[in-house]
Amino acid sequence: MSELRDLYQEVVLDHGRHPHNFRHMDEASHQSVGFNPLCGDKLTLFLRYEDDVVQDVSFQGSGCAISTASASLLTDAIKGKSRAEVEELIAAFLDMLTAESPPDPERLGKLAVLSGVRDFPVRVKCATLSWRTLEAALGGTDEVTTE
């Protein structure tokens, strides 16, 4: 059970149940839809990025606790950040779940609560879905799948 507790930490469960910035955005400058064909999950990420600052970010969609919490934490983490800072966070997050080296709390801040996903390889795609979608939105791609 303890690995499960590491996966589903209280913070993760909270964000899964009551995600932050869970809303549509009419005035988005960037948006993208992410699919996880494995489970049928789908989320739309909205960004208002102006003057090299993420002015606002939100998301909508249906997903598991891990993907919802990850998206919610993402919105908290990147609001007010510059593009370079956002890109560094994306890299840090993906490293945390896919690289061999242990996660670096300095780079990750609050996002480190999702590090337990490393021990559940089949769930890594749930956690990375919103981050891949963010990458796609910034790169001007409308759609992305985790396959």
């Binding site: 059970m1 690995e3 499960l4 489970c39 049928g40 598991c64 606790a65 089949v122 769930r123 749930c126």
Partner: peptide, 20 residues
Amino acid sequence: HPHDVGTILDREGVAVRAGH
């Protein structure tokens, strides 16, 4: 979500499918 159900069932030794 079914995916979360599946993960916890798995750790209990119960193999099911979660998905579409």
